[in-house]
């Protein structure tokens, strides 16, 4: 191909433009950037959460798990980061819905024959729906564990039972609460598993999409990120799902 480009114009015709922070974050790519960055931040949270969950498989009747949960709940730095976590959820959820509405409104008259799966995966087109399922799960999940742990004793919220190890300080027995929530409650276990499945598909697209939004196009790294994303989505979701399953099937006590 000739290096002469297709369009011949007088010198530097493209007018310069202002690009304030407002311009950046209200542009179509900027809005996606907010989704991608908040999504990656929430992904780092999932790693921590799955790690703490995995403590139940120490088979010590919840001692390691309760200590880990106590560390997450009582350390000042962690509590400050927790505010950031809520902010991250808030931004990701609100921006997600705003974009869903904006993107849907770009085609007022639809097609008679839908494209369906010709060219794209169903879960990549259903991030809003999967996100909504995860949100519903999240509300139930916060009600089950976060509320009694952090707000127990306030208003009419029942506090968690205390427990102490080797005569140490009394800490919350979150493990006992978990046994109470999941044992003999098939409906709750099934809802949790459905939440984990939604999360798996959300991550399967979201993980790699976030990196694409940040500009990743090097063919050495694209397959690596896609593979890592798929592995992450499956491993994290399975670890989460195994927790209620382990308790329901009494693999841990």
């Amino acid at each position: 191909m000739s290096v002469r480009a297709l369009f011949l114009c007088p010198n530097l015709q493209i007018s310069s433009t202002t690009m304030t922070w407002k311009h950046i974050f209200t542009s179509s790519i900027g809005k996606k950037l907010v989704m991608g960055l908040s999504g990656l931040f929430l992904i780092t949270f999932l790693i921590i959460h799955a790690g703490v969950n995995a403590c139940i498989w120490a088979f010590d009747h919840g001692e390691m798990f309760n200590k880990a949960a106590h560390f997450m709940g009582s350390t000042v730095v962690v509590r400050i980061i927790e505010i950031g976590l809520f902010a991250g959820f808030f931004v990701h959820i609100i921006q997600g819905y705003v974009l869903e509405v904006q993107n849907r409104s770009t085609r007022k008259i639809g097609y008679e024959v839908k494209m369906g799966n010709k060219g794209s995966k169903w879960y990549s087109r259903s991030m809003g729906l999967l996100g909504t399922l995860i949100l519903l799960f999240l509300i139930l999940h916060i009600y089950h564990f976060w509320t009694p742990s952090r707000l127990g004793g306030l208003w009419n919220i029942k506090p968690l039972q205390p427990v102490s190890y080797e005569g140490g300080k009394e800490i919350h027995n979150l493990y006992a609460e978990m046994i109470a929530v999941f044992s003999d409650n098939l409906l709750v276990v099934v809802i949790y598993i459905l939440g984990c499945i939604s999360l798996a598909f959300h991550l399967l697209h979201g993980f790699q999409s976030a990196f694409r939004t940040l500009g990743l196009h090097n063919q050495k790294f694209v397959p690596l990120v896609k593979g890592t994303g798929a592995a992450f989505a499956i491993i994290v979701s399975v670890v989460f799902a195994l927790m209620p399953i382990s308790i329901y099937l009494k693999w841990v006590d």
Binding site: N103, M115, G119, S120, Q208, R212, T213
Partner: peptide, 11 residues
């Protein structure tokens, strides 16, 4: 609209 990396365009 914005891009959600579904890949339908490429296909």
């Amino acid at each position: 609209g914005g891009c959600t990396n579904t890949g339908a365009c490429e296909a």
